[in-house]
């Protein structure tokens, strides 16, 4: 459903130019949950913003459901890391969730109902009438996930969605993403710098090199049954894969440090 061919992007021109993407190739199938990891500053967010049509890459091609991405595609939703800036403070939580549904031609009552349904799915049933800034960080990120779910996207992009919450909340939100995926069968592309997280939630883990980013490795995660924060993380397959991803991410950095 998503194909990326030789994607390149360079910020600026001349001697100050920064080459963020150095030819990324990637394919994501319908219903997959793909995690993208890589050293910080490697261009993960540039990749996501290109897929979302928020940034026009300088080279290469992105096909979403067979069509080249030229502007923000329909049926796509983004969950950003910085929930407190991404939710609109002048609107109630329910209005925030309902707003994008205007694009779907739904009337006010339908939008409200869809918003309340989505909030219930993220365990925020009672918080619709509150303002985002009245909620804790984890709840705010749940609200922005609810906003994405209500929109019923076929592809959900998540840009380090749990980077600003505490460890316990992070685990809850990881399981929430897994539940949402199981329920709606949507395709999810999740960017993270947390290696454990990528192995825990992903069907596949894509490792990017440092900038200019390229795909270093594409690993399939084969772990048994429904994932569980305790048993999955102690499974030998998890431990082994986490080490492998860690080596791939760090190995590149180590090499760069020794040559630099």
């Amino acid at each position: 459903m998503l194909e990326i061919h030789n994607l390149t992007h360079t910020y600026g021109t001349g001697p100050g130019a920064h080459e963020a993407l150095g030819g990324v190739d990637l394919k994501v199938a319908e219903g997959e949950l793909v995690c993208i990891v890589g050293p910080s500053g490697c261009g993960k967010s540039t990749l996501l913003r290109s897929i979302a049509g928020l940034l026009r890459p300088t080279g290469g091609e992105i096909l979403f459901q067979g069509d080249p991405v030229e502007r923000t595609p329909d049926n796509l939703a983004v969950v950003f890391q910085d929930y407190s800036r991404s939710l609109f403070p002048w609107m109630s939580v329910a209005d925030n969730v309902a707003l994008p549904l205007r694009r779907k031609g739904m009337d006010g009552r339908q939008r409200r109902q869809a918003a309340l349904d989505a909030l219930e799915q993220v365990d925020l049933a009672g918080a619709g009438g509150k303002y985002p800034w009245e909620l804790s960080g984890g709840m705010q990120q749940r609200a922005s996930i609810a906003r994405a779910i209500a929109y019923r996207p076929t592809l959900m992009l998540m840009d380090e969605p749990f980077g600003s919450v505490d460890a316990q909340t992070r685990e809850d939100l990881e399981d929430l993403v897994l539940r949402v995926r199981a329920k709606h069968g949507m395709t999810i592309l999740l960017i993270t710098h947390d290696i454990d997280e990528s192995v825990y939630v992903g069907d596949r883990v894509i490792v990017l090199s440092k900038a200019p980013a390229k795909v270093v490795s594409d690993l399939r995660v084969q772990l048994p049954g429904p994932r569980d924060q305790i048993t999955t993380r102690e499974h030998p397959g998890f431990v082994q894969l986490r080490a492998e991803v860690g080596r791939l991410v760090r190995g590149r950095q180590g090499q760069a440090a020794s040559t630099g």
Binding site: R71, V78, R85, S86, F88, W90, P100, R103
Partner: peptide, 28 residues
């Protein structure tokens, strides 16, 4: 906030909608 504008854009809203639904309320 550019991220607030980008959020609305990511749901496919155009520049006029971004002014009316994000910029103006936020500047109010």
């Amino acid at each position: 906030d550019p991220l607030a504008k980008e959020t609305l854009r990511s749901f496919g809203f155009g520049p006029l909608a971004v002014i009316g639904r994000v910029s103006l309320p936020s500047a109010a």
